[in-house]
Design a protein around this nucleic acid. Structure first.
Lengths: 171, 171
DNA sequence: CTTAAACAGTTTAAGCTTGAAGTATTTTTG
DNA sequence: CAAAAATACTTCAAGCTTAAACTGTTTAAG
């Protein structure tokens, strides 16, 4: 990765090579984003497995349920987690097998079922959640308040822009 | 997600609840980072599959080989991609099966083998690489040069901090 | 030299994830 | 009301990924 060359050079490259300005910089940004997230994610996954006997996706599902004491349907969980229905089916089965999650029938719609945390699941999730927050703080904690706030804002900008680009794709 | 409350409030919370300052903000930052990357990555994976008949990890492996015309050992690829040896074994097998990658014996060490792109693999990778760069530019391209540069720098800060934290874990 | 250790790569079992196809149920439409 | 469409969920095949155990080869130690 070469350092940022600045706009003047980029424009010169554009004129000479016909490459739209910023493509290479966008790529560099993306690769750095990806590798940073992968670095953190790999460590978090490792700790979930070794220290808590669970996995990140199972934790994510339980986090959804923890926020909704009345329970959620599999479909709603699928939408909120942005994963496929089949994925939720499998994760739910493994959590039910562990006694951390329960299935409950819908009152009138026999296709639908609600998932809720069991009391034990709620207790276990509390500990997992606290550990998770501690881990992230440990890994990120030496970032200044100012940098953290800027980064948070800029990621918001990126997310919005990406969503726009994805919407335009279907027009 | 609530808006940032600022340092004063955070310190007050710390005093009252015993939670180290910034834990919650770190968590929010991490979740935003993760969801942003997942959003982009899912789209890129989809396009690799639908438009190019390959996958992101296969592309990543070929990108390593494209940079090293003399070839790389499986172990070196594993280190550079930061994935397990067994993973590289499988990806390499599928790329060899497609005729995009070749295995070559080491001159003296019979344990070792080099991987290189075949001529056809090099051609195919060129097109894939151009498409990939275009896609990222399309998704990221409306971000201002200024924001892009800030984000790149801040991610560098995070990456450095995370690496430091991971090193300290083993002391 | 011989043995032990290190190294390169493979295999395996387990879990995650997806898209596509399939089942059962409910809702909509004519 | 009957047929068609939509919905909720499950199953399946395929691919990615890992950790751990394993094979074969080379290097280091004694």
């Amino acid at each position: 990765m070469t350092p940022d060359d600045g706009p003047a050079v980029v424009d010169l490259e554009t004129a000479l090579a016909g490459t739209p300005a910023g493509d290479k910089e966008d790529l560099r940004l993306w690769l750095r984003m990806l590798s940073t997230v992968n670095l953190v994610e790999a460590e978090i996954r490792r700790r979930f497995r070794e220290q808590l006997g669970t996995t990140l996706p199972r934790f994510d599902l339980m986090a959804q349920l923890d926020r909704e004491p009345d329970g959620l349907t599999l479909g709603e969980i699928s939408r909120r987690m942005m994963v496929s229905n089949g994925n939720v089916t499998g994760l739910a089965a493994s959590l039910v097998a562990d006694g951390w999650v329960e299935r409950r029938a819908h009152a009138t719609d026999r296709r639908t079922q609600y998932l809720t945390l069991t009391p034990h699941g709620r207790f276990v999730f509390g500990r997992q959640s606290a550990a998770h927050e501690r881990w992230i703080a440990e890994l990120f904690g030496r970032i200044s308040h100012r940098d953290r706030a800027s980064l948070y804002r800029l990621l918001g900008v990126v997310k919005t822009r990406v969503r726009q680009a994805l919407e335009e794709e279907f027009e």
